[in-house]
C-alpha cells in the first residue's frame, strides 16, 4: 500500500527468499534446522522494526542467536537441575 520503506515483514520475507537457493542445496534435515532459525528471527520482528536498522539482516542474525542462547540457557538449567538432583 504505497509504502516508501518496505515493512519489516516484507524485509524479512525478502531476506528469507534470498536464501532459497542455499536452502534447496541443503539436506532435508538441515533445511528444517534452517527453517527453525528463520522462525526464531521472526519472533522478534517488532523489535527489529523498532530498531529501524539500515541492514535488517544483521538484526535477524542477532535474533537467531538470541533464541539459540535462550535454548542453551534452558538446557543448561535442566542439566544442572538433573546433576543437582
Amino acid at each position: 500500500m504505497g509504502r516508501t520503506v518496505p515493512s519489516i515483514t516484507q524485509a524479512f520475507l525478502h531476506e528469507e527468499a534470498s536464501f532459497a537457493r542455499f536452502r534447496r542445496a541443503l539436506r532435508r534435515s538441515d533445511q528444517l534446522a534452517l527453517d527453525d532459525l528463520f522462525a526464531a528471527a521472526r519472533q522478534h520482528l517488532a523489535a527489529a522494526a523498532y530498531a529501524a536498522h539500515a541492514l535488517p539482516f544483521e538484526i535477524f542474525l542477532l535474533a537467531m542467536l538470541l533464541e539459540e542462547h535462550k535454548e542453551v540457557m534452558r538446557l543448561r538449567a535442566r542439566v544442572e537441575a538433573q546433576d543437582g538432583g
Binding site: R3, T4, V5, H44, A46, A49, A52, A54
Partner: peptide, 16 residues
C-alpha cells in the same frame, strides 16, 4: 534523509 525516513516510516508496534 534516507535514515530519517527509515526511522519515521513506521507504524505502531506490533509484537508476535
Amino acid at each position: 534523509s534516507a535514515l530519517d525516513l527509515i526511522h519515521a516510516d513506521q507504524g505502531g508496534l506490533v509484537y508476535q
